[in-house]
């Protein structure tokens, strides 16, 4: 059985390339994940993405999407597909990606882009960040680093080195989505283009 490196991050796949969205609770991982699904992405996870330390493939976490009550209003069409659950005293909505679209559940894929989500107001802003900076961010979001031990640092380094890295100051959801599409997606193939 593989001991995965678990990252507190959402993961979506365009074509055969994965985009990881990391950030603390409330950064907007689930909302952006769902919005990107509407743009044709398939879902690995909205909250927890698993890295195989040997292959560095990103794997889906074994749980449905969990949408906060405040996030569901962006997606009225999904309200009938979601099941309410009590989560830390608040109502959240459990949603199986397969109920959105038959092919919305992603197979494991190699990471080609990572975006660190920062809360913000006003216009969204997407800026490249350094590998050094991204490693620090991912390390903060790593959920089981000590369990993986020696294999964790090389695996994270490889994932970072094979990805384009950005920080997104979240603003309006539509503007954030537009920036991601324009910056990362090839208009004809709808897959992530990188210069790696």
């Amino acid at each position: 059985m593989i001991a995965y490196l678990k990252i507190h991050a959402a993961g979506v796949v365009f074509g055969d390339a994965a985009l990881m969205l990391c950030g603390p609770n409330g950064a907007g991982k689930t909302t952006l994940t769902l919005r990107l699904v509407q743009e044709g992405a398939r879902v690995l996870s909205d909250d927890e993405t698993w890295i195989d330390p040997l292959s560095t493939l990103l794997h889906p976490a074994e749980r449905p999407l969990l949408i906060k009550d405040s996030g569901l209003h962006y997606f009225p069409a999904y309200a009938d597909l979601a099941t309410p659950v009590e989560d830390q005293g608040e109502t959240s909505w459990m949603l199986d990606p397969g109920s959105i679209r038959d092919d919305a559940r992603a197979d494991p894929a190699f990471c080609r882009a990572i975006i660190n989500l920062m809360p913000g107001a006003g216009p969204a802003e997407l800026r490249p960040i350094s590998q050094y900076e991204m490693f620090r961010q991912l390390l903060e979001q790593c959920m089981n680093f000590p369990e993986i031990g020696d294999a964790a640092v090389p695996a994270l380094s490889r994932v970072i080195r094979s990805s384009v890295l950005y920080e997104l100051r979240r603003g309006d959801l539509e503007h954030s989505t537009k920036l991601i599409k324009e910056t990362l997606l090839c208009p004809t193939t709808r897959s992530i283009t990188t210069t790696i």
Partner: peptide, 14 residues
């Protein structure tokens, strides 16, 4: 353990 990055490195004290 040493892992290189393009703009730095990560060292892991085992």
């Amino acid at each position: 353990q040493y892992s290189a990055l393009d703009d730095g490195a990560v060292i892991y004290d085992t």
